[in-house]
Write a protein that binds this DNA or RNA. Structure first.
Lengths: 335, 335
DNA sequence: CTGAAAGCGCTTACAG
DNA sequence: CTGAAAGCGCTTACAG
């Protein structure tokens, strides 16, 4: 492997100077810089990351952690899109990403890796869990980190999120104003902030229209397709005329349950989701839903994390990305 | 951060000895080992990865590379499952995984990172592309690597795969023997080995039954849902009575096109796929398909790569995992 | 603008 | 079984 040493020798300068050229230090004469750069190119030199990290105390690697209880959802298209956004930002800012998927037996190993062995300069926690043990450790440590999904209580924690409450409320309000009378919801899990917030939006929309929430019209799913299926089955006997499902993936399951009950969408029941996944527009009928910018969330999370790493004293960031309601044929204005 | 030095001081031994304990070197007395271990635990010591890598010339990190032309398929559930398998093996063998998604503008950066900066001990190329530029570079380099998807020509390249030819042939044979007469196929891309092999299996099944392939019954998709949709639309005018689709994701698209044509499955046309994705069993009707062990492929790839890293002189590995035909309601025996 | 030198936190022959 | 010492390939004050 080509080393700094070798470049220095061939360019007839010291290792210090080569290092400065490599790191774009301005105080190097143009002439010297050019000479070094030529040798670098000719020998196809790339600095050794481990050596660099050890000397500089910075690895230019960020960790992406998907906690164990979320891994069940990992095959949701949400994560690939998020990861692509993260990768994009990392490419732009010359960083790399280390991936940790939680596994039940290796939770401790992961936490200690993330926190203690100096591999990463910071971490993105794609969690949305309200009580994550890694998050607690991160808060206590000095390692910069950012959540994808807001933290409900600790204002010192940085995060990227959308306004789930307002978005859900807006969509349910649309259903109410479209004339639907018995609007049900399949909420997300109570231990995920997105689940809690979207349910809150649903409740707010109802109460602001003077509608008393009927507990028979509210059930909880786990954000999986099957969760939506089971949830919808439990709702059917209560005869809702519309249902707001807290994720598009669950909406697929709900749609299946509705079909099996022999109901038609939107004639017998309106269906609305949340996320606007790639498949949502191609559902039959196309799904009314809330579009959230997942790729952008990943990009922003990585970019902001890198800023936090660069300037550890900066304020925590709370970034709220915009959403948009996609009105499609699975709901229909009844007026 | 706690260092080796500090542990050594507190345990009243040399740094060498602490290092040996940390690395499970047998030639340390039980007594000393125990004393060191206690201090390690008490101070919550974790070796610095960069320092360790630099000294040992090994990082215990493997790279997972998804080439750019495959990233479009990254939201396919295939990849999350593969990644989970890789992660599992890495946890068991105390390795970590670095993720690179190809991006058009950063192809060169990625290749040089992967190859030259010493970050990873080896790489898994989840490519299936037959002409990948990174693969060429890897072959020329000394870095251990393994493909997910066989290499068609170079026997020195290690890979994990299933027997796509035999599996496809078996499924199409079943269709023939079920009495279907005009069996079409939506093949995968010509530059992916899985696409080529599955098409070959289709052709073999036909020819062994003395059926001359009708070029109107063969089209090519890109392994995406939309590819399956467009492909099926092009097939409809030729009135096939069965279609073998080279991936379950494409089969979803094909199903949509069939519905839109007003045909019923399997009454008017049988539909069969490849992969057995989580959703395939829940399709309406449930999809007949080839189950391939994706999680296991990831696991095996990582585990084998680690072996190749440990013993660089060992022979290349060609690992073929078993498949299983899942007979479901989207095809029906006509006899 | 440039170089000599110390140091980052480990591993690993070598000697005993 | 244990320790002293060299070395992995960089960065970064410090001095000039």
């Amino acid at each position: 492997m080509v080393t700094l040493e070798e470049i220095a020798k061939r360019a007839k300068v010291s290792r210090s100077t080569v290092s400065r050229v490599i790191n774009d230090d301005p105080k190097v004469s143009d002439e010297t810089r050019q000479r070094v750069l030529n040798v670098v190119k000719r020998l196809n030199y790339h600095p050794n990351v481990a050596a660099r990290s050890l000397a500089a105390g910075r690895t230019r690697i960020i960790g992406l952690v998907i906690p164990e209880r979320v891994v069940g959802l990992f095959s949701d298209p949400y994560f690939p899109i998020l990861i692509q956004g993260i990768t994009s930002a990392c490419n732009v800012h010359d960083h790399s990403v280390m991936l940790w998927l939680g596994e039940p037996d290796y939770e401790r190993r992961m936490i200690s890796q993330v926190l203690h062995n100096g591999l990463v300069d910071g971490v993105i926690l794609a969690s949305m869990l309200m009580d994550d043990s890694l998050m607690q450790s991160l808060i206590e440590s000095a390692l910069p980190f950012i959540l994808v999904g807001r933290h409900p209580t600790d204002a010192k924690v940085s995060y990227v999120d959308v306004d789930n409450v307002a978005s859900a409320k807006q969509l349910v309000t649309y259903l109410i104003e479209s004339g639907y009378q018995r609007i049900a919801t399949i909420a997300g899990p109570h231990n995920m902030i997105a689940g809690v917030d979207r349910l809150k939006g649903y409740e707010l929309a109802l109460s602001e229209h003077g509608i008393v929430a009927d507990s028979n019209l509210i059930c909880t799913g786990d954000f999986s397709e099957n969760g939506g299926y089971v949830g919808m089955q439990s709702l059917i006997p209560s005869k809702p005329d519309a249902v707001f499902v807290a994720s598009d993936t669950m909406a697929i399951g709900a749609m299946r349950a509705i079909r099996e009950a022999g109901w038609r969408i939107p004639h017998d029941i309106a269906l609305a989701g949340f996320d606007d996944m790639p498949f949502s527009e191609r559902m039959d009928p196309p799904l009314t839903t809330v579009r959230q910018p997942i790729h952008q969330a990943g990009y922003k999370a990585a970019e902001t994390l890198i800023e936090l790493i660069t300037d550890p004293l900066s304020r925590p960031r709370h970034i709220i990305l915009p959403t948009e309601i996609m009105y499609r044929a699975s709901t229909n204005s009844k007026t």
